[in-house]
Each structure stands twice: as C-alpha cells, then as structure tokens.
Design a protein around this nucleic acid. Structure first.
Lengths: 213, 213
DNA sequence: TTGGTAAGTCTCCGTGTGGTGACATATGCT
DNA sequence: AGCATATGTCACCACACGGAGACTTACCAA
C-alpha cells in the first residue's frame, strides 16, 4: 500500500482546470466583469492563481475557455425551443427565438454579465466571448430555420438584430435597475408585458398586414 | 504689490468645482466607468483628490453633480429635433425620437458610457444618473408630443421602451465591438441601415397597414 | 492687527490588484 | 534505483486604489 489516496492521476490537473473554469464562471456570474480577475477566481477555486497562468496563460485564456463552453450553454438554453417542432412561419421562428432569448437571459446570470460586458468594454478580452455567443446564436437560428424564408422586402437580419438588441437591453436594464424608460421590469407580469410586446413587434414586422389580435 | 498673483477670489472654489465636474465627465467619457474614481478625476482636474471629498463628499456627490447636468445635456442634443416643427402623426414623433437618440448617443461618448454603466451595474451610484437620463428623456417626449395620441390597441409606452432599448443597445454594441448579431455597425452606411430599420419598425408598429415603401 | 476659517497641498496608510520567481513535492519514464 | 518534469504552494514585487491626517496658505471679519 503505497498510499491511501486512490489515484490522483497526473496529480489532478484536469480537476483543477475544471475548478478554475467553473469558479471563473461563478465569479463572473455573481460579481460581474468588474472584480473579475485572477485573484478572485483563484480564491473562489481555492487554488493558487499561479495555476491560472500555467494552465491558461493568464486571465485571457480562462475567458477563452469560458467562451468555448458558451456555445453549448446557449444550445442547452435554447434547446427546449427547438423541441417545439418546426415553426410554421418565419415570424414564428423569430418570435420563438426572441422569447427564448428573453427567458435564457433572465434565467442565466452568466449570459447576462457577458452581454453587459460586451457593450461596456471594447477590449479584445471580450471579443472571444462576443464571437462565441453570436456564433452559437446564429447557428441555432440556422438549424431551426429549415427552409423558411423571410418575407420579401424586409431586412430580416437587420430586423432580427434589432429585436435581439431590444430584448437583451431590456433584460439587462431590468436586472440592473428594475425598470427601463419608465417601464417596470421586475415581477413576472412586467415580463409578460414584454413578451406580448415582442410578439406584436415581430408580427408587425413580418406578418405584413396586421394579424387579428 | 502684495503678490503678483492676480486675485483668486475666494481662492477659486467655484473654478475648482467646475474643473472637477468637467474632468469627471471627461474621464467617464474617455475611459468609461471602469477606472473612474477619485484618483483619475483629481489627476485629470490637476488638483488634489481631497477636494472631491470636501466639496462633493466623495465620488457619489460628483456623480450626482454630473447627473444634474445630464438633463440639460440631453435637451441640447435633442433640441434640433424639436426645431423641425410639430410631427404630423404619432409615428413621426416616435421615429424622430428614435433617430435623434441614435444620433445623440453616437455623438456623445459620455451618454454612451452612462448608458453602458446603467446596464452593467445596479449600484445606487448609478441610480441618480439613470433617473436623470430617463427624466430628461420623458420630459422631451412630453413636450414635443403636443396633443398627439398613439393609435389605439398599441402599448405605446412599451413599444417606445422597446425601440429605445434596441437603439441604445445597437449604439453601445457598435461602439464597443463594431458589430452586433452579425450586423456591422461601423461606417455611416451601416448606420444608415439602422436608420431605415428604425423607420420601418416604427411604421410597422404604429401605422397599422404597412405604408407604401 | 489679530484670530478664525476655508482652501489647497502634501504625505502616509491599509488594501487589493496583476504578475513573477523560488521552492518542495509528487509523478512518470528509463 | 535515479532523474527530469509536472504540479502545487508560498512569498514577494510594483503599482493603483480609496481615504484620512497634518500642514501651509490665503481670506475675511472683528
């Protein structure tokens, strides 16, 4: 019996790496990108910050590692939407995406922090996250779109970006201030209002003559 | 001749105060809310940080002083829009407001930084800024609205908040990353696209049957 | 003139940050 | 076995931060 320890293969590098990534996500989700740094992450992971430099080459590498997992995270969040079956019209697709994004952001503090980070900081640190997030987003769109085509005469990518921007901003403002432009964004009924807002906006843009409401 | 110094009346407290406020705005506009603090502001104002504590009671007071000037700043930015005469329809009003806000945010780094701050930080420090900004905004709306009424069956405050949120987010993302959701936001033609997007969104929501485009 | 008070400047402190080097220990390979 | 390497931990550095205290200087009213 050489030791009673089972077998810390390679002395647990993988475990430490995962712990660091997980702690980094937690720190980012809980305190935001301010106060996010090697010290805070190492403290949360209960290991030395030196490992961050050794394993990830610094905080940038850690952020990139988070970005790499971000695509999967988005897919998981948006998966239930895809399971609802193929949308009938293009507007259904967009509506579903917007509502799904709304819920995903509301449920996931990490996604919210990253979204806030993206608009607050142009540093290259964030670029990888932005890339990963938008890639996961468009990929999901592509997959669930099927052969649906947007109605002619509408700048669909632009309109979608517009809607996504609005949803994102409303969630962020609601999370930070509980209101935006005089509109309360606190309890579930406030968000129900946002949902109907989304539906009517999407319908107004894509279903040319207003549908029976 | 007691001294060659002219006459620093009251030894220039007012001047220092204004210098501090001005420097605070500059620092905030240039480096953003990260790196915004007593040291940076005092350094920019070329005076001792102690004065910040003495005159404003700390950085919070300084931020509140900025907030107090924010209403005027917004009015100035939005004034040219009001000079265009009364809008004919409610949708014209909203369109004008959205386009004006787009331009104001694009031109004014300070407004952008504050907007980014609002969605990134729920601390009470920002609350005064948020309040001042939204107050100036709604006030301008009230004034230029006149007796125009939104079409029935539309949640006008909600739709407006939605549109404002989208505009704000697009400008912030463009300023930080140069793109959003696959849509480039760099040169003037990109923003022209956003402008037509705004117009068509507003028209779709408020001018029920789609107008000839 | 004198004294009180405000203005302005200086130093100093404790803390937290990102980052580096040194050192001991464990592991796998030959 | 022995050795090189990977691993984990510690101390340390320079720097910036927010903040307080002490000090000199100017003003203004008795």
């Amino acid at each position: 019996m050489p030791k009673e320890k089972v077998l810390p293969r390679t002395r647990d590098r993988e475990a430490k790496e995962r712990a660091l990534i997980e702690s980094a996500k937690n720190v980012l989700a809980e305190v935001g990108f301010q106060g996010f740094g090697v010290n805070a992450v190492a403290r949360a992971a209960a290991c030395d910050k030196q490992l961050i430099y050794r394993y990830f080459g610094g905080i940038e590498g850690l952020v990139e590692a988070i970005g790499a997992e971000l695509g999967l995270r988005l897919r998981d969040r948006l998966a239930p939407l895809a399971a609802m079956g193929k949308p009938a019209r293009y507007s259904d697709l967009v509506q579903r995406m917007a509502l799904g994004l709304l819920q995903a952001l509301r449920d996931d503090a990490l996604l919210r922090r990253i979204a806030a980070w993206e608009v607050s900081d142009g540093s290259p640190l964030v670029a990888s996250l932005t890339l990963a997030r938008s890639k996961g987003m468009t990929q999901w769109m592509m997959e669930t779109r099927g052969d649906l085509k947007p109605p002619p005469g509408v700048d669909a990518p632009g309109a979608n970006a517009f809607i996504i921007a609005a949803v994102q901003h409303l969630v962020l403002a609601g999370s930070a201030a509980g209101a935006f432009a005089g509109m309360a964004l606190r309890d579930e009924k406030d968000w129900e209002r946002v949902r109907t807002l989304i539906k009517s906006m999407v319908a107004a843009v894509y279903d040319a003559p207003k549908p029976a409401q």
